[in-house]
């Protein structure tokens, strides 16, 4: 390498600097462009939510020529129930789902990651297999079971699965995290007289908080957005979650409600955006580690 470089050094140096700077600028411009295209639908939604109806499809600019905050006030009461009801319902389901996932998945993950017993490997493979399983295969029988239990039109079908660690993704995430903790911790705890339960509670749990945070945020976002479960299990509008409520805007399309629809859509996404900004670090780490196994 030192010998085989006959080009005059000063010229190639200048050239190279010029080229990299130019290409860096074009790269940033391109990235900004892609970013703008990506952000456009969201910005358009926000801007349409504060425009008077007649301007939504005529005024393409993102900055509204005329502001109309009435969309939020009217949209709040435009559906069968006031929007507060839907927000509270969604919130209750989300919080209970987070609790369920954290408890049941961390227990299972500790079993898989730190304990030894017959059948563990088999169970683990089975668990990984369910990650790839299309949920529709379970749909009809689960519906029948829940119907037989009299759980239709209640929250149980949406909540109970989360308390039974059916979400393999979170177990996997926590297993990965726990496996990275030094094995000596368990041995030390054992020597100090801790059984598996104390070890889990006092030693492993506190160290797994980042993995729990990731699970909580992912659960929040996926349950908050979930549509299919509520669609088949909930029939009374007092029980509707936010996504189900939003669908009513499309069913009752009176053309005149565009602004309200966007206002409520934006409200429904705001908590997700908030959680995303607050928990970005954990989210990115979470999906990155599962991807790299």
């Amino acid at each position: 390498m030192p010998i085989a470089n006959p080009a005059p050094p000063e010229e190639s140096f200048v050239e190279r600097v010029g080229k990299t700077r130019r290409s860096r600028y074009t790269k940033h411009v391109l990235l900004c462009l892609v970013g703008a295209v990506m952000m456009y639908p969201l910005l358009w939604m926000v801007s349409s939510s504060v425009k008077p109806n007649e301007l939504i499809f005529t005024d393409l600019s993102l900055w509204p020529a005329k502001w109309d905050l009435g969309n939020y006030i009217d949209g709040w009461t435009a559906l069968e129930q006031p929007f507060t009801v839907y927000l509270v319902n969604s919130f209750v389901i989300v919080v209970l789902s987070i609790v369920g996932n954290l408890v049941s998945c961390s227990l299972a993950a500790y079993g898989f990651a730190r304990l030894r017993f017959t059948g563990r490997k088999l169970f683990f493979t089975l668990m990984l297999g369910t990650m790839m399983l299309p949920g529709h295969v379970l749909l009809v029988p689960q519906y029948i079971v829940f119907a037989k239990l009299g759980w239709l039109n209640t929250y149980y079908p949406l909540l109970v699965p989360n308390f039974l660690a059916t979400n393999a993704f979170y177990i996997f995430l926590m297993v990965q995290f726990m496996r990275a903790l030094p094995k000596e911790l368990d041995d030390a705890a054992r020597i100090d007289g801790c059984g598996p339960f104390r070890t889990f509670w006092k030693v492993i749990m506190p160290l797994c908080l980042p993995a729990f945070a990731t699970t909580a945020i992912f659960t929040f976002i996926s349950v908050w957005n979930e549509f299919f479960g509520p669609l088949i299990y909930l029939t009374d509008s007092e029980l509707y979650t936010v996504p189900l409520a939003l669908r009513q805007f499309i069913d009752s399309e009176g053309q005149s409600q565009w602004g309200q629809m966007f206002a409520m859509s934006f409200l429904s996404l705001a908590p997700v955006i908030g959680f995303f900004i607050a928990g970005q670090k954990y989210l990115v780490k979470g999906i990155a580690t599962t991807g790299l196994k």
Binding site: V103, S104, L107, A108, Y110, G111, F112, L115, R116, F117, R120, F123, L126, M127, T130, P161, F163, L164, A165, T166, I171, G195, P196, F197, F200
Partner: peptide
């Protein structure tokens, strides 16, 4: 013992 106990929610769910 502990292993199956920790896994019990998952086993029931499964």
């Amino acid at each position: 013992r502990a292993g199956y106990l920790f896994l019990s929610p998952w086993i029931i769910g499964m």
